[in-house]
Design a binder for these strands. Sequence first.
DNA 1: TAGTCCATGTAAGATGTTACATGATTCA
DNA 2: TGAATCATGTAACATCTTACATGGACTA
Lengths: 187, 187
Amino acid sequence: MITSNSNSALAFALLGLIWQKARSGYDLRKFFSSTPMVSFSDSPGAIYPALRRLEQRGLVLGHMVEGSGLRRRRIFELTARGRAEFRRWQTQPVMRHDVVRNMDVLMLRFAFMDQFAEKGASLRFLKAFHKELAAYIPNLRKYLKSNREYMPQSGRLALESGIQTYETQLRWTKTAMRTYGQSKGEG
Amino acid sequence: MITSNSNSALAFALLGLIWQKARSGYDLRKFFSSTPMVSFSDSPGAIYPALRRLEQRGLVLGHMVEGSGLRRRRIFELTARGRAEFRRWQTQPVMRHDVVRNMDVLMLRFAFMDQFAEKGASLRFLKAFHKELAAYIPNLRKYLKSNREYMPQSGRLALESGIQTYETQLRWTKTAMRTYGQSKGEG
DNA sequence: TAGTCCATGTAAGATGTTACATGATTCA
DNA sequence: TGAATCATGTAACATCTTACATGGACTA
C-alpha cells in the first residue's frame, strides 16, 4: 500500500490558519511572508496546489467571493472532517523521531493547541515533549564526550550548538508548563 | 531554464562525509543512523539515488571492492569537481533566507569548514551568521510585542521558544568566535 | 535451517521549487 | 500609460518517503 496517510507540515499549517478564520490562498501567502511563520514557503506553487488537495480530501471547502471591486477571491473554511483530522494530528503522541527530525512540526502542533485541542492537551504535550528531550540530550552529550578529540573544531562546535539548542528547548518546556499553572515537580 | 543549479542538503552531507574519507552507501547510512547527523534520512531510497546523481554529475567516483568475504561494496570518493563544488557551497554568503528557513543547512556548512575551507573561513562565517541573527531577532521580538495580546497562549509560547532558540544560536556564535582566537569587540 | 546483519538497489507516489502566465485594479 | 499590487493558477523538474526486492554471510 503506497498511499500516504498524512498531510505535510504545510498542509497542517494551512488547516490551522483556516480554522482560526476563513482565508484565501493569498491571505495565507501574506501570512507566511509577514509573520514568524515565514519558515513556510509563501510560493503560489506550494500554496494553491496544497489547498486544492485539501479540498479534494474534503478537509476544506472553498467558495468564490466577488468582493469589493478586486479580483474574485476563493475563501476556504474547514469542514468537520478537516477539524477532526487536524485534532488527530495535533494530539498524536510525541515521538522521538519528531524530536530528532521534525522539531518544527512539533512546535507547529503546539502553537495551535490552546485553540483547537481540548483543555489539558497543551500540558500533556509539554510533559511528553520534556520527557523525550530529557531522554535524547544525554545521547548527544555522550557522543560529544567520546568523539570530541577526533572531531574537527567546527564539527565539535556545530554539535555543541545543537546540544545547546535542545537544552534551550528543554528549559522552555519547563517554563511553559509553569505557565499552565502546574509546576508538577520534576527533578 | 528549469534546471536546478544546486544539490540538496543531503547531497552536500554526503559530499562532506565522503571527502573526510572514502565511504560506501552503507557506511553513510550507518553514519546517519548512529551519530548526531541522525537528522538526515538513512533510507536507502534517499541515499543510493543521491549517490548515483552525484556520480552522474561528476562530483564523486565509485568503484567496487570485492572485500573480505562480504558482499561487494561500492566505495565513493570525491573528484576534483566534487571538492570545488563543496567549497563553493560552503563559502557562499550567509543569507537571511538561510537563517530563517535553513538553519540546519547553515550549520552543516559550518560543521565541515575547518576541514575543507581555507583558513579564516570559519571565522568569517561566524561573523556573517552573527550579523544576520542579530538583525533578525528584533523582528521576532517586535512581532511578539505587537501581537502578544491577540495570540493564544500556546501560540505565544511557541513564538517565545523560537526567539529563545535564535538567541541561543546568537550566543553560540559569540563563544565560537572566541574559540577561533579573536574576540573582535562587537557591541 | 531460520533469523539477522551486511549491502545495494528499484518503483510508485506525493510534495515542493522555480519559473511562467494571466488579468484586474490602483496609483503616480 | 506604465508600474505595482491584488489574486489565482499551471508546468517542468528534482527530491524525498515508503515499501518492496535480492542475495550473501554469519550465528544460534
